[in-house]
Simulated assay, not measured.
Amino acid sequence: MEIIPLRQMKKGQSGSIFQVKATGELGRRIREMGLIPGARVTIYGRAPLKDPVAIRVLNTTLTLRNNEAEYIQIEID
C-alpha cells in the first residue's frame, strides 16, 4: 500500500485516511468534518486551477484547499 498526501490524489482515486498531521485549530476543523483515520475518501473533482479539491467522505461532498489537503495522508488501495 502506498501512502500519499490527499493533495496528490487524482480525480476518481480512492483510499483511506492514514493520518492527519495538522494540529491546533486547523487539525480540529479537519477532524470535525469527519476526516479522521480510517475514513474512506474519493476525489470527486478539482477546480480549473486545481485548487480547491472536492472529496467524498461519509456520504458527504467537502472541499478543501490544497494547503489543507497536504496535512492529510491517504493509504491508496
Rank of each mutant, 00 (worst) to 15 (best):
Met1Lys: 12
Glu2Asp: 14
Glu2Thr: 14
Glu2Asn: 15
Ile3Val: 14
Pro5Met: 07
Leu6Phe: 03
Leu6Lys: 03
Leu6Asn: 01
Arg7Lys: 10
Gln8Asn: 13
Gln8Phe: 12
Met9Asp: 01
Lys10Phe: 05
Lys10Ala: 13
Gly12Thr: 12
Gly12Asn: 04
Gly12Val: 08
Gln13Leu: 12
Ser14Asn: 05
Ser16Lys: 09
Ile17Cys: 01
Ile17Asp: 06
Phe18Gly: 10
Phe18Asp: 08
Gln19Ala: 11
Gln19Pro: 01
Gln19Asp: 06
Gln19Glu: 14
Lys21Asn: 14
Ala22Gly: 05
Thr23Pro: 01
Glu25Trp: 11
Leu26Arg: 11
Leu26Ser: 06
Leu26His: 04
Leu26Gly: 01
Arg28Ala: 11
Arg28Cys: 09
Arg29Asn: 01
Arg29Lys: 15
Ile30Lys: 05
Arg31Phe: 09
Arg31Ser: 07
Arg31His: 12
Glu32His: 13
Glu32Lys: 09
Met33Pro: 01
Leu35Pro: 04
Leu35Ile: 11
Leu35Ser: 05
Ile36Lys: 04
Ile36Asp: 02
Gly38Val: 05
Ala39Met: 05
Arg40Tyr: 00
Val41Ile: 13
Val41Thr: 04
Thr42Arg: 07
Thr42Leu: 03
Ile43Asp: 00
Ile43Asn: 00
Ile43Thr: 02
Tyr44Glu: 14
Gly45Ile: 14
Arg46Gln: 11
Ala47Met: 07
Ala47Asn: 09
Leu49Ser: 09
Leu49His: 11
Lys50Val: 03
Lys50Gly: 07
Lys50Tyr: 05
Lys50Asn: 07
Lys50Arg: 08
Asp51Tyr: 01
Asp51Trp: 02
Asp51Cys: 10
Pro52Ile: 00
Pro52Asn: 03
Val53Arg: 00
Val53Pro: 06
Ala54Leu: 12
Ala54Cys: 02
Arg56Pro: 03
Leu58Glu: 14
Leu58Ala: 13
Asn59Ser: 15
Asn59Trp: 10
Thr60Arg: 15
Thr61Ile: 11
Thr61Glu: 11
Leu62Asp: 03
Leu62Asn: 03
Leu64Arg: 05
Leu64Ile: 05
Arg65Thr: 12
Arg65Met: 08
Asn66Leu: 12
Asn66Glu: 09
Asn66Ala: 01
Asn66Ser: 09
Asn67Cys: 03
Asn67Ser: 05
Glu68Ala: 07
Ala69Lys: 01
Glu70Thr: 00
Glu70Phe: 08
Ile72Arg: 07
Ile74Asp: 04
Ile76Phe: 12
Ile76Gly: 11
